[in-house]
Design a protein around this nucleic acid. Structure first.
Length: 214
DNA sequence: TATATTGTTCAGGCTACTTG
DNA sequence: CAAGTAGCCTGAACAATATA
């Protein structure tokens, strides 16, 4: 009698090994596991859900294409986050370029864009918290999201952001101090940058399609 | 050049866990 | 249970860098 182990009991590293061995479809499982945390992190950089979806797709495709280069000295999630952050920086660079080109034609560019997430947001606390997070500089926001929302430890955050451990601690403290000015009560991570099943499926299927994984 | 921002170092304290 | 240890938080001081 053969006992079939449920896929969701596999560790990330076991799934990676099986994907590399030819079970490409299991990459879907890896994406679904990390979608929420990547989305939150992406939102902390880009503040636009559609842009984050694009960047997440690029991240997953990039990670898949270099999966054999993944060294297991850090968690797969940390590796993914590192890739996502790089993609976010590239995306921001592209946006900056486009914005400066547009500026030559239009002087009155709005500073922020209305997003579908904004429209969906019906929980007042969530809105307050998001606004508070978005009000602080990106470097502090990223540390705060990784440490406080994704529950990464100092070492993992240090690795993901490519900064020293000490700097992680300092940025975390400063992020809290800045947020304290905006927030007087606790927050619940479920209401910050909500990641819905529809979006999850959309990203997963788009990546599988682009990678031609049936 | 003055000021603000950012990063580093250090000290002290807290909590959780381990060990004898 | 007390002592030791590791990891973390916090605040202060200072240096380096960016900006007006």
């Amino acid at each position: 009698m053969t006992i079939i182990q449920p896929i969701d009991t596999f560790t990330d590293n076991e799934l990676i090994a099986r994907v590399l061995a030819g079970e490409k479809r299991l990459y879907e499982q890896l994406m679904r596991r990390h979608n929420t945390s990547l989305f939150r992190l992406g939102m902390s950089f880009l503040n636009n859900d559609m842009d984050v979806e694009d960047v997440m797709q690029l991240t997953y495709i990039n990670a898949y294409q270099h999966l054999d280069q993944f060294r297991q000295d850090a968690a797969f999630g940390t590796w993914l986050k590192r890739i996502l952050i790089n993609e976010c920086h590239q995306h921001l660079k592209r946006m900056k370029k486009t914005a400066s080109e547009d500026l030559a034609l239009h002087q009155d560019i709005p500073k922020t864009r209305e997003t579908p997430v904004d429209a969906m947001m019906n929980k007042e606390l969530g809105k307050v918290l998001e606004n508070a997070l978005l009000s602080i500089p990106e470097k502090y926001r990223a540390v705060f999201v990784l440490r406080e929302i994704d529950q990464l430890n100092v070492a993992e955050t240090s690795k993901a952001l490519d900064i020293s451990k000490v700097n992680v601690k300092v940025r975390q403290i400063r992020a809290k101090l800045m947020l304290r000015e905006h927030i007087s009560k606790f927050y619940q991570n479920d209401v910050v940058f909500p990641f819905h099943l529809i979006r999850c499926d959309r990203i997963v299927y788009a990546v599988l399609d682009k990678l031609e994984i049936k």
